[in-house]
């Protein structure tokens, strides 16, 4: 991979679970941005719902002294991703910017990756996607529409990353911190999500990741996720 003429980014995200109100705006934004099919109660019951990001709920304490903690869970873009080595056709790999990429063309649909993902953030297209009218007219042209038989997952809105990098290159300037915003980050009304370059020690996401409040999901598995969850230090 010849990327020597570009500055190397390493994209990561910080999510403040103390700020998250569980409003699901990120989920809706992700669906609109990434051409995700809609799911209903029946498809969800059969485990076929596709949500690249979901909001997990955790209840702390006993009723009535109960506190709900929300945790948006998306692909953690692990440095040591368990999904990658199990793919027999190299359809998922780590790209030079640290993104865990899914190549739809290569995918043959073994579903090994989804089975090996400890975060359950990979989704298989059991059927060709169908949208009720008029939602079929609002597809994002920058994102592929995945066909039946392939896996799909959060891309950290790679189309937005590519676009920002392209625009910065055209204007011959470095990419500013906060210039790239995935749909979920952009839509978060509580500003609980921050996206940025982990290679830049001055970026907001790097500083949050190194703050004492930062934890990573299932860190003990050694997956080295690039999504950092911030919560009250106890």
């Amino acid at each position: 991979m010849n990327q020597s003429n570009q500055t190397q980014h390493r994209w990561g995200m910080a999510i403040d679970s103390d700020r998250c109100t569980g409003c699901q705006a990120c989920v809706a934004a992700c669906h609109a941005e990434n051409n995700l099919p809609l799911s209903d109660a029946e498809s969800a019951a059969r485990g076929r719902a596709v949500h690249w990001i979901r909001v997990d709920r955790y209840y702390e304490g006993e009723f009535p002294d109960i506190r709900v903690k929300y945790m948006p869970v998306l692909c953690q873009h692990c440095d040591e991703a368990p999904c990658e080595p199990v793919c027999p056709v190299y359809a998922t790999y780590k790209n030079p910017e640290g993104l865990n990429v899914q190549v739809y063309n290569r995918c043959v649909g073994t579903r090994y990756c989804a089975n090996n993902c400890p975060y359950s953030v990979r989704f298989f297209n059991w059927f060709d996607p169908v949208w009720p009218s008029p939602l079929d007219l609002q597809h994002n042209p920058d994102v592929s529409i995945r066909m039946a038989g392939v896996m799909e997952k959060c891309t950290f809105c790679i189309q937005r990353i590519n676009r920002a990098e392209r625009e910065a290159k055209e204007e011959k300037r470095p990419l500013a911190d906060g210039e790239v915003q995935p749909a979920c980050v952009q839509s978060c009304p509580a500003e609980a999500m921050v996206f940025g370059d982990l290679n830049d020690p001055e970026s907001k996401v790097s500083r949050l990741a190194e703050s004492g409040r930062s934890t990573r999901l299932l860190e003990e598995l050694g997956t080295q996720p690039k999504v950092f969850y911030l919560q009250r230090a106890t």
């Binding site: 991979m1 010849n2 990327q3 020597s4 003429n5 570009q6 790999y93 790209n95 030079p96 993104l99 990429v101 190549v103 739809y104 063309n105 290569r106 994102v143 592929s144 891309t155 790679i158 189309q159 590519n162």
Partner: peptide
């Protein structure tokens, strides 16, 4: 031309 050979440069 030493352009990107990353899959995700074109396929996404």
């Amino acid at each position: 031309k030493h352009a990107s050979e990353d899959c995700a440069a074109c396929h996404f």
